[in-house]
């Protein structure tokens, strides 16, 4: 799909420190690897994700996601539910302005799922490659 075969998307991963963050560490300890242009920002709970974080991330990158604890396993009960809500909200915003809504997503995993972490990141990366560069990036 992408015009440029060398295109390397940049991805901002917001990660709950109880799942995504620990899973990234687990992946590292298992010796797995994933693309370089994927960067993590730690949050105390996926419920801390804000639409504005996603939007600001997309001003800079090609795709962004929140990694949350498994459904019904949020340490704070409702964090991942609120996060899913905000992902939907962001997707609506993107749709409104004609940017692929798939550029933002929520993924659920547990602290001991290093493999899953890599799988999620790699799949998302591949998808962003297919979509090509984010047309909405704001270059100042």
């Amino acid at each position: 799909m992408s015009a440029d075969a060398n295109f390397q998307p940049k991805i901002v991963v917001f990660a709950c420190e109880n799942s995504g963050w620990l899973a990234a560490e687990h992946a590292a300890s298992l010796g797995l690897s994933y693309p370089e242009r994927v960067e993590l920002i730690k949050l105390p709970c996926s419920g801390k994700i804000d639409v504005i974080y996603f939007m600001k991330a997309l001003e800079k990158s090609d795709g962004t996601m929140i990694m949350a604890c498994q459904q019904e396993n949020c340490k704070f009960l409702k964090g991942n539910v609120r996060a899913a809500q905000r992902v939907r909200q962001t997707q609506n915003l993107l749709k409104e302005i004609g940017i692929e809504e798939d550029r933002v997503g929520i993924f659920y995993l547990a602290a001991n799922m290093g493999h899953k972490f890599v799988e999620i990141v790699q799949n998302f990366y591949d998808k962003m490659r297919e979509l090509g560069p984010n047309p909405g990036k704001v270059i100042k």
């Binding site: 620990l22 687990h26 498994q70 019904e72 396993n73 659920y108 547990a110 602290a111 001991n112 799922m113």
Partner: peptide, 19 residues
Amino acid sequence: YCCKATDKCAKCSACLVPQ
């Protein structure tokens, strides 16, 4: 133990042990 969540948490508690 491994995490047994599918689309939802299976409440196996395995993730609490590393913590």
